[in-house]
């Protein structure tokens, strides 16, 4: 090792592998600093706006509360005192709905994701199509013919079993794990606008409109594909040996899954949970349709601040700020998991 380094080396070459040389380091910080500004400025502007009165918003830009304009708490007062319960109720709804549906989605989704990596499925194409057929019939009989749904469900199931045992054996072509996985992700392609009316009618018929349950179920279904995909990748990166030895000891699949695999994948679970939580937390269109008074969520409140008098920037800013605060808090808590979380999860495509 030479003891003397030239100026070029000092500036551009790192002293050790774990270090970064001064010039690249400075450049790095400049770029990262710039992007920090890009990320934070809109949020800063929201905070500033929340302290302005209307005339200060419409009168050209003002940047610093207390310096170029006099801050006012009127918007905060309106949201928390005047609206009061109309702010708190959606807040609790959002918390209940998004947390429960994220948990359910992560549990169901990781089970499916695990199964898709460890178990080989070969469902016969014919029986799958048949199943979809009977499902459609069932739904039609509930929605259009007005059959009571337990009866329809039972008879649909019976019909399927009968058909499966009679004609089911004739099918040859079968599907594979990858087909199932692609089928799941493809469920996210259709825009919500196209599916919201059928879903509305469905929940209306089973009497769940304007309840938390309707939103929880729908969000679970909508986000399940993402969970399955992310968790599938994650499980693939966990070595098989552990499970194999456990299986040799006579542990059942459930036990292997719940006592060995899940604890190992805490990071992936945390990251996926966070992502799904954010998606549920911010969803607008489905919430608009499935809730009326009792189950309304916060994004509706944001959109509602644009009424006949144009966007009420000051109120809107307050609502957005109180909306992201808890998510930021959760992120900070889960952050140490996420670092490792998506890390393994995303490694294999």
């Amino acid at each position: 090792m030479s003891t003397k380094r030239s100026i070029y080396q000092i500036l551009f070459e790192a002293k050790s592998i774990d270090d970064v040389a001064p010039v690249p380091k400075t450049l790095t910080y400049i770029i990262l600093g710039f992007w920090t500004f890009v990320c934070l400025f809109p949020l800063y502007w929201l905070i500033v706006t929340s302290f302005k009165i209307p005339i200060q918003v419409h009168d050209g830009p003002m940047y610093f509360p207390g310096i170029d304009f006099k801050p006012s708490m009127h918007a905060w007062y309106y949201i928390f005192v005047d609206l009061g319960n109309d702010t708190l109720r959606p807040y609790f709804n959002t918390i209940i709905v998004s947390i429960s549906s994220s948990i359910i989605a992560v549990v169901i989704g990781s089970m499916a994701g695990y199964a898709l990596t460890r178990i080989t499925y070969q469902p016969k194409l014919g029986s799958v199509l048949m199943f979809i057929g009977t499902l459609v019939l069932t739904v039609i009989s509930v929605v259009w013919l007005g059959l009571a749904w337990p009866i329809a469900l039972a008879s649909g199931l019976a019909l399927y079993v009968v058909m499966l045992t009679t004609v089911g054996r004739r099918f040859k072509k079968s599907l594979h794990n990858n087909d199932i996985a692609f089928f799941m992700i493809s469920q996210r392609i259709l825009p919500p606008v196209a599916v919201v009316i059928p879903i509305y009618v469905l929940f209306q018929r089973i009497g769940l409109l304007d309840t938390h349950a309707a939103l929880i179920i729908t969000y679970t279904a909508v986000n399940l594909p993402i969970v399955v995909w992310l968790m599938r990748d994650f499980f693939e990166s966990i070595p098989m040996d552990l499970e194999e030895s456990a299986a040799l000891d006579g542990a059942s699949r459930y036990r292997v899954f719940f006592t060995i695999i899940l604890p190992l994948s805490k990071p992936g679970l945390a990251a996926t949970f966070l992502l799904v939580l954010i998606l549920c937390w911010n969803e607008y269109l489905i919430a608009l349709f499935l809730s009326t008074a009792n189950a309304q969520t916060l994004p509706l409140l944001v959109a509602a601040m644009n009424a006949t008098r144009g966007p009420q920037w000051w109120y809107m800013a307050v609502v957005i700020i109180i909306m992201i605060t808890p998510v930021i808090a959760i992120t900070i808590v889960l952050q140490r998991f996420i670092t490792r979380g998506l890390l393994i999860g995303a490694v294999k495509g």
């Binding site: 009618v201 349709f289 509602a304």
Partner: peptide, 24 residues
């Protein structure tokens, strides 16, 4: 009981409630 929805969606929201027989 005054129930409110965002202005832009009032029309569709009312119609779906009444047309599908929800009548809430």
């Amino acid at each position: 009981n005054v129930i409110t929805v965002p202005f832009s969606d009032l029309y569709t929201k009312l119609l779906t409630d009444w047309a599908t027989g929800t009548n809430s």
